[in-house]
Write a protein that binds this DNA or RNA. Structure first.
Lengths: 257, 257
DNA sequence: CATAAAACCTAACGTAACGGGAGAAGCAAG
DNA sequence: CTTGCTTCTCCCGTTACGTTAGGTTTTATG
């Protein structure tokens, strides 16, 4: 009943380590019942109970400091604290889920294409990481409900879009330097527009709205890291211009008035 | 194009902190393009790209050391690493989900009963924390498929069982010291047996098997922290004995042969 | 051009919860 | 008495920075 355990026995019995027990002693979280004149620690059955409390609260995600408070105040008014702790854990869970989603997208892309340009990879990850911020940003440009419908598409669809976009960007990067007016370059641009239309659900007004406000996007690398280098971007810009002029969406700056 | 940013500008542009940038410099993760004679750091657009890679990989859960390797080896054979990372993250997610489940049970109990004895609380948490270990342990006693059916019950049912058990244990703790043969004590024991039967699905053989092997349980506090103190446990043992004798399940040690 | 204000620098300690090692001392058995 | 096991007390290392402290440089302004 009044058993005494050396620190080694106690550690084995409770599944902790000697070092942890000494640490708990040091921070006054769990002191051994008895310390011999030579400094050896001896624990009792009572200490087992205390340690179990510590282990349980640690499992729930509390810091040793918080646990110290709980055990010392002896008040056990966990209720509020538990609810708070749950909120915390839910947030962590959401974060991890987002990370997993990003990893899934990346893996899907890799499987589909073997290897991937790092800049494209980065901007894909960023899209997921910054999803909420992007939404907020978009809400400053177009009505809120439209933003929600934009983002309300299935995971598979998103993966497919991302993979298609990545593949296309890869091709575009390879084509940099070619004549922007050539047929194959214009075909790439067309594919890009197709994807964009697909995303926006074919509503051309949105495209127009976005194009008009696009001036601001470029130089906010923390919100929108570009998958293209400045040179690439310039080239893409030219090709895009040609495309839009041919489509008659914008005016030809070279035409004689 | 060949813009130079002071560390402050750069931090703002990229959404990091000055301290972090200095740290990245220190660990050779991201060195500024230019350092003035007086020691001031100046970053270029190229550094923005590098930093974005770092941020993206950090989001995916990699340590700065790993990131350093990736960026230095320039190999970008992420594929395997991504899959591994996903496994890691899935594990973390599972862990967190278990914690949340434990928190839910605890909260449910608190709501139902206002306050709860700490020992009971601990053993509830432990039940969830050690679920897998308990399963393994049980599989050493009864057939594996029976173990699985035992644990294959809905979350609500489990919460209800836990809450009922907790309430019952509380009452039992209050009754400690009373005559084990009295009607109200025996009623408590009966309720306990009802719950046990409920859990085991009424299969009495299992109960018998478990009772026979129960000798081992008691002194493994790391696997089964008891919600009762030794004295309480002894009292419960007596009451249980009376109950089982009256039921005729075990023999009366006092009866004259 | 002088000075004040803003930005920047290095150096160093603090964080959470121990892990691990060095070197010394206690303790039971042969 | 010696051997071998256990335990003891320092003390450094871990991660990714945050946070002073105290000094220098750059920029803005009068």
């Amino acid at each position: 009943m009044a058993e005494k355990y050396s620190i080694g026995e106690f550690a084995k019995k409770t599944g902790t380590t000697i070092r942890a027990l000494r640490y708990y002693d040091e921070i006054h979280l769990l002191k051994p019942t008895l310390v011999s004149p030579s400094g050896r620690r001896y624990y009792s059955n009572n200490d087992i109970i205390q340690l179990q409390k510590i282990v349980a609260l640690k499992f729930l995600g509390y810091s040793l400091e918080k646990i110290s408070e709980f055990l010392h105040l002896k008040d056990w008014d966990l209720k509020d604290s538990l609810a708070f702790q749950k909120q915390e854990m839910m947030q962590r869970k959401e974060h991890i889920e987002r990370v997993i989603r990003a990893l899934d997208h990346a893996l899907h892309m890799m499987e589909d294409q073997g290897t991937v340009n790092s800049s494209i990879f980065i901007s894909l990850i960023n899209n997921i990481q910054m999803e909420d911020e992007h939404k907020e940003w978009l809400k400053g440009l177009i009505p809120e409900n439209k933003v929600e419908t934009l983002y309300d598409i299935s995971e598979e669809k998103q993966q497919e879009l991302n993979t298609r976009t990545a593949l296309l960007f890869t091709k575009m990067k390879e084509a940099v330097g070619k004549n922007p007016e050539s047929d194959d370059v214009q075909e790439l641009i067309k594919q890009y527009m197709d994807i964009t239309e697909d995303v926006l659900g074919g509503s051309l007004e949105l495209i127009q709205d976005l194009i008009n406000s696009q001036v601001e996007i470029e130089d906010d690398p923390k919100l929108f890291p570009s998958p293209f280098t400045p040179e690439e971007e310039e080239w893409v810009g030219k090709a895009m211009e040609v495309y839009l002029i041919r489509k008659g969406v914008i005016a030809d700056g070279n035409e004689t008035s």
